[in-house]
Each structure stands twice: as structure tokens, then as C-alpha cells.
Design a protein around this nucleic acid. Structure first.
Length: 291
DNA sequence: CACTTGACCTGTCCGC
DNA sequence: TGCGGACAGGTCAAGT
């Protein structure tokens, strides 16, 4: 679910909602979702104040004034939802059975803040995780060491993109842009959307693309992700913003999950679904000629 | 090293 | 309706 635009939307939402809060209590139903030791939690999380919410690639970082940071990856089905002090759900509460109440069966980690508000890490498939670690060590995580440039960084130029793509020159362009070491943040939705916009077939070998083509792809990837952030991210099933609301980007998608529907550029042509790099892939066979 | 595939989990949807 | 299989936004480990 969450690719860069969704994670950025959550980051912005959380920034408005949880900065300044004091963590009062933490519990988990799944050791894998939150693997930290109790002594560390007590020493560096409980009683600590949230001072910033950051993002790098698809990773969220919640900084605490204890010198520790909560590093969070939502993977496929993770959510981070804030519920204010005026709303109480859960066991024993009169509104416990209300639809949409939290926690629910997918809630893996519950954070209670000192003012009575809560934040829930929900994750149906349990791929995601929350990890407490010293703020200074976040950058040395293996993922952070290898992750490529942020697409919105001015230093992510056409030349930088082309150079990064060289390391994956024998694979397909779709596999290459899904590789987080090439650039940060692109996932299955924005890969398909960007490739369609740039008129590139996802199975094209990287080495067969011109500088002009990769430059157009860079521009389109940036533009489609910017549009998605503007729309609050996608509206797919498991994705919600920090306040539990959905985005609307999916309404603007040109190919993603539109198989069988008409291409907006070629009304007589249906969008097709194929498999590339092990992922469901959506194309217009006219816009994107097979290599 | 570069590339591909399977594994991690739960839930849903589709065809028989 | 029931049941099996394919598939779902991401990343790793292990295979070739």
C-alpha cells in the first residue's frame, strides 16, 4: 500500500497531531511488530516527548526528546492512526462495537499519550514494524545506507537518475525503478503510472532506454507522486491517513487497477494487466510499445 | 556482482 | 454457500 505519497501524507498528518505529546504507555500483540526490550522502552520511550516526524523513502521516523527515535515501516498493509482524547473505543467501552473503532483485530502496537489520546499501528499482514533505536543510529541502518535519492530533492537530476539506473542496466525498467537503491519511494502504483505517462513499456531493458526517455520518466514519476500527495495518497483498501481518512489519488490513476477499462489517450484500447518483476503491471499496449 | 524468485502473513475475490 | 488458488501497496534472503 504505502508508497512515498502515502507515507508522506501520513507524516504530514501525524506532524499536525502528535508533536508535543508525551508517551505514557505502549503495548503490542506481536513481538515481531515491535521487537524492543522492555528496559529500553521504559528508559527511552515512556515519558518521552515527540519532537518531530520525518520520512526517508517509505520509512517514517518519530523523534523523541530522549535521543531515541521510533522507526516505522508500513510495508503492504500498515497504518498509523491517531485517535484524539475525546474519542474512546475498545474493550469495556460503550462504543466498543462501533464500526471503525480502534483498536481492532489488525492493531499490532498501541501508543497511549499522557493527554488521553492514542496512536494505533495496525497491520493486517504483519510485514510492517516499529522499532525504537537511538536517533543517531537511524542513518546507519542497512536500508538507510543503500537507499537512493529522494525524488523531490533538487539533487535528483536527470544525470543522477541515469547514473543510478546503470547499476540495473540488464533488468527491466520496472524492476529498476522499484529498486529503492535507484531512487527512493516508488512502488507498484507509481511505477505503472510513471511508465505509462512516459510512454515506456515496463519490460524495456534499462540499457535500451535513451537519456531522453529516462529523463522524461524522472519528470513523470515526480509529477505523479506530487499529484498523489496533493490528493492525500491513494484510496486503496488498507491505506488511511493519520486521522483515519482515505486519499483520492486512485480516482486520478490512468492505468493502475484499470485493466479492462479504456485508455484515456486511446478510447478504443483497453488497459491490460501483465506480470513484470513479479508484480501485477498495468499498461496501455498502444501508449507503451513492447520492446 | 547482478538478477530472479520465494518467503514473510492475513484477507479477499474469483471460478468451480 | 463452500473451497481452493491466485493475488494484494514491500523488502529480504537465497537461489542461479
Amino acid at each position: 500500500m504505502p508508497e512515498l505519497p502515502e507515507v508522506e501524507t501520513v507524516r504530514r498528518g501525524l506532524s499536525e497531531l502528535i508533536i508535543g505529546k508525551i508517551v505514557a504507555k505502549v503495548s503490542t500483540d506481536n513481538q515481531k511488530s515491535f521487537p524492543n526490550s522492555q528496559p529500553d522502552v521504559e528508559a527511552f520511550l515512556l515519558g518521552a516527548k515527540i519532537i518531530a516526524v520525518r520520512r526517508r523513502a517509505k520509512v517514517l521516523m518519530i523523534d523523541l526528546n530522549s535521543g531515541y527515535t521510533l522507526v516505522i515501516h508500513l510495508k503492504m498493509t500498515g497504518q498509523l492512526v491517531y485517535v484524539g482524547p475525546e474519542v474512546r473505543f475498545g474493550a469495556g467501552h460503550p462504543n466498543e462495537s462501533l464500526v471503525g473503532g480502534l483498536p481492532d483485530k489488525s492493531t499490532r502496537v498501541e501508543f497511549a499519550f499522557a493527554d488521553g489520546s492514542n496512536m494505533y499501528f495496525n497491520d493486517q499482514r504483519k510485514f510492517g514494524w516499529v522499532r525504537l533505536m537511538p536517533s543517531l543510529e537511524v542513518d546507519s541502518l542497512p536500508f538507510m545506507q543503500k537507499v537512493g535519492p529522494e525524488p523531490f530533492d533538487p539533487e535528483f537530476t536527470n544525470e543522477v537518475f541515469a547514473g543510478r539506473l546503470l547499476r540495473r542496466k540488464n533488468t527491466t525498467i520496472k524492476a529498476a525503478i522499484l529498486d529503492q537503491s535507484v531512487l527512493a519511494g516508488v512502488g507498484n502504483i507509481y511505477a505503472d503510472e510513471g511508465l505509462w505517462a512516459a510512454n515506456i513499456h515496463p519490460e524495456t531493458r534499462v540499457k535500451d532506454l535513451s537519456f531522453e526517455q529516462t529523463s522524461k520518466l524522472r519528470r513523470e514519476l515526480i509529477d505523479v507522486m506530487a499529484l498523489s500527495i496533493e490528493k492525500g495518497g491513494s484510496s486503496n483498501r488498507n491505506y488511511v491517513n493519520a486521522d483515519g481518512s482515505k486519499g483520492s489519488f486512485t480516482d486520478f490513476a490512468k492505468v493502475f487497477r484499470r485493466d479492462g477499462l479504456a485508455c484515456v489517450r486511446h478510447p478504443d484500447q483497453e488497459i491490460e494487466k501483465i506480470r513484470v518483476a513479479g508484480r501485477g503491471t498495468h499498461i496501455c499496449p498502444v501508449c507503451q510499445r513492447r520492446p
